[in-house]
Computed example of a mutant assay.
Amino acid sequence: MPEPAATSLPGPAWRVPSETGPLREVLLCPPDHYRWIPTNSIVRRTLAGDNQAPAAAHLKAQHAELVHAIGQGGAEVRLIAPEPHLPYMAYTRDSVVVTHRGPVLCQLERPQRRGEYAALIDFHAAHGSNLWRKSSAGTLEGGDIHIIRPGLAAIGASGGRTDRAGADQLAGWLREEGWEVRVEEFDEHFLHLDVLFCMAADGLAVACEEVLDPAFLGWLRAHGIRWIPVPYRAAMSLGCNILALGNGRVVSARESTDLNAALRAEGLEVLDPALSLFTAGGGGPHCLTCPLRRDA
């Protein structure tokens, strides 16, 4: 299925008050220049194995499945033009995260990805979308930022991607807005917090209990959030890396068969594009998408 054309028409003010409200607009980047680069433990394992480099046609086909799934869920897909020297631009989650007050420009840690910020600044400016805040302390990446519901957020700080200074700066901005924010430290082996935890629906998450701190799980429970457990091996294949669409729908990679069955058992409609070439590089549906607008 062909991907929709990018648009430069001014859009409405983009706001995301939660991870689970109905998704209305989302930003993706076509994988025209995507290739595996050794920037995380997941892709290093892929490169160390007997795996052929992904073919452009296969990447395009899998990405088109993701675009189609999101469209089935009722969201409008906007595209940012890929740049040849930035192969991981396809993972649009990390450079900018949109909050209840608008976009926050992040500060990426890996040199191979730092240049992504420029295109994102231009994209938001072209659409009349003013940046609410710009990360300037330490490092901050979108895969570590979870706007669980209005007034409640978790920010991962592994030190490998998002560090404590970057997490604390964003947490401070949100706390000034009256939010409760938990900064959760974890081992940098796991790249981003969304490798271990994502929201599936209001009050329901997926989580790797084997790795996450029991105190974090207790904090979730205290806030009325339950979770579907995802084993370590599945988490390292991006099993936790899902995208809630709202209205009882969720996008999860087709390869996550056990999790998808569990999500369906919860009454959710699971849209399951094949994404094996992207999960092998370290990112799934959550990483490949940057929500621009959700309903409260």
Rank of each mutant, 00 (worst) to 15 (best):
Met1Trp: 00
Pro2Asn: 13
Pro4Thr: 11
Ala5Leu: 15
Thr7Lys: 10
Ser8Pro: 09
Pro10Ser: 15
Pro10Arg: 15
Trp14Thr: 13
Trp14Gly: 09
Ser18Asp: 14
Leu23Ala: 12
Leu23Gly: 11
Arg24Trp: 08
Leu28Gln: 05
Leu28Ile: 06
Cys29Gly: 06
Pro31Asp: 06
Pro31Trp: 06
Asn40His: 09
Val43Met: 12
Val43Thr: 15
Arg44Leu: 12
Gly49Lys: 14
Pro54His: 05
Ala56Gly: 09
Leu59Ser: 07
Ala61Phe: 05
Ala64Met: 01
Ala64Lys: 02
Glu65Cys: 01
Leu66Gln: 01
Leu66Arg: 01
Val67Asn: 02
Val67Pro: 01
Gly71Arg: 12
Gln72Ser: 12
Gly73Ile: 07
Gly74Glu: 10
Gly74Tyr: 02
Ala75Lys: 05
Glu76Thr: 14
Arg78Phe: 07
Arg78Cys: 09
Ile80Pro: 01
Ile80Arg: 01
Ile80Asn: 02
Pro82Trp: 00
Pro82Ile: 07
Pro87Gly: 10
Asp94Trp: 04
Asp94Asn: 02
Val98Thr: 11
His100Trp: 10
Arg101Asn: 09
Gly102Cys: 08
Pro103Phe: 04
Pro103Trp: 00
Glu109Asn: 09
Arg110Thr: 11
Arg110Tyr: 03
Gln112Leu: 10
Leu120Gln: 04
His124Gln: 03
Ser129Val: 13
Ser129Tyr: 03
Lys134Asn: 14
Lys134Phe: 14
Gly143His: 10
Ile145Phe: 08
Ile145Lys: 01
His146Met: 13
Ile147Met: 13
Ile147Tyr: 14
Pro150Asn: 13
Leu152Asn: 13
Leu152His: 14
Ala153Cys: 13
Ala153Gln: 10
Ala154Phe: 11
Ala157Gly: 02
Gly159Ile: 06
Arg161Ile: 11
Arg161Glu: 14
Asp163Gly: 10
Ala165Gly: 07
Ala165Ser: 15
Ala167Leu: 04
Leu170Ala: 00
Trp173Tyr: 12
Arg175Pro: 02
Arg175Thr: 15
Val183Trp: 05
Glu184Pro: 00
Glu184Arg: 00
Glu184Phe: 06
Glu185Ala: 13
Phe186Trp: 03
Leu191Arg: 11
Leu191Cys: 11
Leu196Cys: 06
Leu196Ile: 07
Phe197Trp: 14
Cys198Arg: 06
Met199Ala: 13
Glu209Pro: 02
Val211Ile: 15
Phe216Leu: 15
Leu220Asn: 04
Arg221Glu: 12
Ala222Gly: 12
Gly224Asn: 01
Gly224Ser: 04
Ile228Ser: 05
Val230Ile: 08
Pro231Gly: 08
Tyr232Ser: 05
Tyr232Met: 11
Ala235Gln: 06
Met236Asp: 13
Leu238Val: 09
Gly239His: 10
Leu243Arg: 10
Leu245Arg: 07
Gly246Cys: 10
Val251Ile: 12
Ser252Leu: 01
Ser252Gly: 05
Ser256Lys: 01
Ser256Met: 15
Thr257His: 09
Ala262Tyr: 02
Arg264Leu: 03
Glu266Val: 11
Leu268Pro: 06
Asp272Glu: 14
Pro273Tyr: 01
Ala274Asp: 14
Ala274Phe: 00
Leu275Trp: 02
Leu275Ala: 04
Ser276Cys: 06
Thr279Ala: 05
Gly283Pro: 00
His286Glu: 07
Cys287Ala: 09
Thr289Ile: 03
Cys290Glu: 07
Pro291Phe: 00
Leu292Ile: 02
Leu292Ala: 02
Arg293Cys: 09
Arg293Ala: 13
